[in-house]
Nucleic acid binder design. Sequence first.
DNA 1: CAATCTTTGTGCACGCGTTCACAAAGACAT
DNA 2: ATGTCTTTGTGAACGCGTGCACAAAGATTG
Lengths: 216, 216
Amino acid sequence: MPTVSSEELAAAAGVNSAKLRKDFSYLGSYGTRGVGYDVEYLVYQISRELGLTQDWPVVIVGIGNLGAALANYGGFASRGFRVAALIDADPAMAGRPVAGIPVQHTDELESIIRDNGVSIGVIATPAGAAQQVCDRLVAAGVTSILNFAPTVLSVPDGVDVRKVDLSIELQILAFHEQRKAGEEAAADTAAVPAAPRKQSATDQGPDGDVPAVMPA
Amino acid sequence: MPTVSSEELAAAAGVNSAKLRKDFSYLGSYGTRGVGYDVEYLVYQISRELGLTQDWPVVIVGIGNLGAALANYGGFASRGFRVAALIDADPAMAGRPVAGIPVQHTDELESIIRDNGVSIGVIATPAGAAQQVCDRLVAAGVTSILNFAPTVLSVPDGVDVRKVDLSIELQILAFHEQRKAGEEAAADTAAVPAAPRKQSATDQGPDGDVPAVMPA
DNA sequence: CAATCTTTGTGCACGCGTTCACAAAGACAT
DNA sequence: ATGTCTTTGTGAACGCGTGCACAAAGATTG
Ligand SMILES: NC(=O)c1ccc[n+]([C@@H]2O[C@H](COP(=O)([O-])OP(=O)(O)OC[C@H]3O[C@@H](n4cnc5c(N)ncnc54)[C@H](O)[C@@H]3O)[C@@H](O)[C@H]2O)c1
Ligand SMILES: NC(=O)c1ccc[n+]([C@@H]2O[C@H](COP(=O)([O-])OP(=O)(O)OC[C@H]3O[C@@H](n4cnc5c(N)ncnc54)[C@H](O)[C@@H]3O)[C@@H](O)[C@H]2O)c1
């Protein structure tokens, strides 16, 4: 029986072994003292806890540059996600296959969601259409949304939204980048305007990850 | 002089006003008691602190489905990022313009980085090539990397890596999704195998955001 | 100039996740 | 069966970010 110790696993994952053991203990994965964890059993338990044992049908709305790339991406299937449908508002795209899946028109959004029992939706439409699409998805029964449009979506309680904002990713990198270079040149506080031009403040909804108080 | 109070700002951002004030105090943004913060000055200070006042040249390596979508994405420029070059290993793509920028061959990677003073690189190659591309970028002077390939990159100290893993985003949604549905059906612990088939454990590098102990 | 009123800046306490450290459990050898 | 040795599971301490609450600052008004 192949086993792994918490120490090995922790080293590989780059985390503390005690934390790893405590985390495992939360989901009831019992190891064997003096031996470690049964790899099989552990993998199964974690897979199950993470929801990887079942297949999740997802729909992608907005089959443009990004949406098409997502549709072509094979990495989803290997993690238990199945692209149930591709949806776009452009009538010219209807019926045209992308990644072997025919694009369907937005009119059919509701029926597609219901017929396939879809609970996860991906939004890759322009920012202007995102909230509207989101509302329709939610109304049709979707309760989890992955949003690529640079907009804060407002959803009712019970619906989860995760936003992937590539600009913010780059901003975070740029921030640290600036810090690296700015250490020695910290005295260069030359042209700091005392009173910049006027501009309005940003209103923004609550976000899980990033504070986000900056205007675009 | 247009001003905003920490209370207004906090309400708009959905955070606690005390936290917001404390955060501002860290970057030395002095407000005026009884009045609030000068919007102009505040915007400028935060922009500067976040590195938004300068223009960052970035290169995208791997101009496939995703890379091309990124190149076409206009959201970067508006945040102060400029696509300095597109790089791909496929000779057939060399010279072909994507989003108005001619694709250059990997051979020129080093010179492109140096000539343009690029410090931020985006990797959108297949997973197998990611580490190799990363090494070359770092060797050429890149110190911040945004990685879309589903691989953990190992880099020397001083180099920042941010990984965007869309599968994990979906997994997080699926996890919560399962929890929503699993409340009532919690008793369905029927077919739990006591000893699954054998399989190897995953080794994985340290990650900032997600524990990531699961195999693909 | 004094009184009042608004809003900042921050000391302090609370809560939570992480880490340490160790007793107990169990495998394995003798 | 007994002893040894490895590794788990977890109580307790630590550190850190968040939120509360309030004194001080400064604008504004009479
Ligand atoms: N391309 C990128 O790399 C990238 C990166 C980050 C964010 N984004 C964001 O992702 C979104 C899509 O980007 P893109 O480059 O694919 O844009 P795109 O213009 O290429 O594609 C948008 C697609 O959405 C469709 N669409 C428009 N309104 C719709 C609606 N109401 N219902 C359904 N479909 C609709 C359009 O027909 C089009 O096919 C944008 O919001 C963009 O800001 C893109
Ligand atoms: N498409 C998606 O939506 C998506 C989503 C998540 C992650 N990813 C990941 O992003 C990466 C790219 O995805 P894709 O769909 O664009 O793949 P793709 O196959 O369409 O594009 C890959 C590109 O990289 C180029 N390339 C290969 N080796 C290279 C090298 N050594 N140097 C420079 N260029 C090289 C290829 O010529 C090709 O143009 C993959 O790792 C994929 O797993 C993609």
